[in-house]
Amino acid sequence: MSEVLFETKGVSKIFGLFKAVHDVDFSVLENDAVGIIGPNGAGKTTFINILTGEYFPEEGSVFFRGEDITNLKSEKRVAKGIIRTFQLVHVFDSITVFDNIALSIYRKKEGTAFPLNLYTTVFRKNREITESAEKALEVFDLIKDRNQLVRNLSLGSQKRLEIAMAWAADPEVFILDEPFAGISDHEIDDIIGILKKLVHKKTIIIVEHKLSKLTEIVDTLCVMHEGKMIASGPCEETLNNPIVRKSYWKIED
């Protein structure tokens, strides 16, 4: 039986006079796949930033496995198994693909934000790291780019690499911020194929615009509008919810 993994109670984030996130209650069951949709400026990314510790909310609390993590720093949340990706792809473009993935694995392996054996570890010489990295490279079809500098990769490959980095860290929960933005349909299908293998094995939270693609993966859908979480529930049900139809689709019944 799955339990509640991630939960927020009444969180708000205010920028000056603007309430970007307004009193949001949200919960995710373990091994559930949740999509968060909403128009631009609805506060989706801000909400993700609260979940991952980029921002600390002015009001409300964030819980992870029942523990209050409202004021925990981002690097400590990673240690609890919360990994995110970014809307604008965030990878390290001056080092190789392999090193990017190795960084993620190494962090997981050492289990600390400041590993003391930094100086004595050589990624390429460490069997544990190379084996896990090879596996990640294979799953995400990056083998041939193994020793390329990331800046020479296409945007689609960089997106895949960013998800691969999250995957390689073997987290409890994946938080993906617009994983399909700015890449071709073909590349989107690749990523969906990979994500489908994770569904019901890991907890996944996806923020996305492309609804049609999203429903292929998620079971639960949440809708944000003007900083508020206006609906959540199974996909079909949410999409037919009159409030959602009114405020999101601008459909009057």
């Binding site: 965030h90 001056s94 960084l103 962090r107 934000a113 930094l118």
Partner: peptide
């Protein structure tokens, strides 16, 4: 590697869990 990574993108480094 960590230093070079942190110089290109310190934010991502924090979200990989490094101090």
């Amino acid at each position: 590697t960590v230093l070079k990574a942190a110089s290109t993108n310190p934010r991502k480094m924090r979200f990989l869990g490094y101090n």
